[in-house]
Simulated scan of single mutants.
Amino acid sequence: MNFGFSLAGLILLVMLFVPNILWSKCPPDDYENYSKNENRILLTLERIGQVLVVPLSLFCGVDFSFDIILVIAFLLMVIYELYWIGYFRSPKTMHDMYGSFLHIPLPGATLPVVSFFLLGICANNIFLVISSIILGIGHIGIHFSHMQEIS
């Protein structure tokens, strides 16, 4: 396991944060009605995962090389960006936010979690892998419950 600044981790984080910052300016119309009902345990796991994944991604020691796992992690984030482009061009409803994209369920939640999980595997960093799992349980769990509410 290596530690050291990771340009790959930084780029993945930028790819994560930019659409989320834009989303904060135009969330779905009744998002606040759903967010006030979020499970506190899932919310806590999501926050813990976020706090751990960010620094661990920045300092996981992965540099750019042709590693198939790293390539897949970046491809997933490219798909994530395409999902957001579709959302921003849509009427921005809860259905637009939680619909599948390219047959991927909950792409706004699953794609970045899997991408950072793969970054952890590529870096051979068990802390990033575990942090991604914690993030995934909380983040995907919250989004899954929102999806169930709108169905």
Rank of each mutant, 00 (worst) to 15 (best):
L12V: 12
S115C: 04
L118T: 08
F66E: 04
D63W: 00
I85H: 14
L56Y: 08
E149S: 14
F127L: 15
A109H: 01
R47L: 15
V14I: 15
L111E: 01
L58K: 06
A123N: 07
G120F: 02
G108N: 13
L75N: 14
T44A: 11
G61S: 02
L118H: 06
A73K: 07
I85Y: 13
A73S: 13
T110V: 15
I79N: 05
E38H: 09
L82C: 07
W84V: 06
C60N: 13
L52C: 14
L75K: 13
I134P: 07
G141T: 02
P28F: 05
W23V: 00
I72H: 04
L42K: 06
F5K: 07
H95Y: 09
E81Q: 14
N33K: 15
L42I: 04
F17I: 15
S90M: 05
L16H: 11
R89T: 09
L58R: 10
L135Y: 13
L10A: 15
F17D: 01
M97Q: 09
L76C: 04
F3N: 07
V54L: 14
K92G: 03
Y34A: 07
H103C: 01
P112N: 00
L70H: 02
S115K: 03
Y80E: 01
D67M: 01
F59Y: 15
I48A: 15
C60S: 15
M94W: 00
I85S: 11
P112R: 03
E149W: 10
K25F: 13
S24N: 09
L56D: 02
R89E: 05
L70T: 09
I69R: 13
F66R: 06
R40V: 14
F5R: 08
M15Q: 08
F116R: 10
G99N: 11
F127D: 03
V18T: 14
N124T: 09
L52D: 02
M77A: 05
H95V: 08
F74P: 08
L119A: 11
Y83H: 12
Y31I: 05
N125A: 11
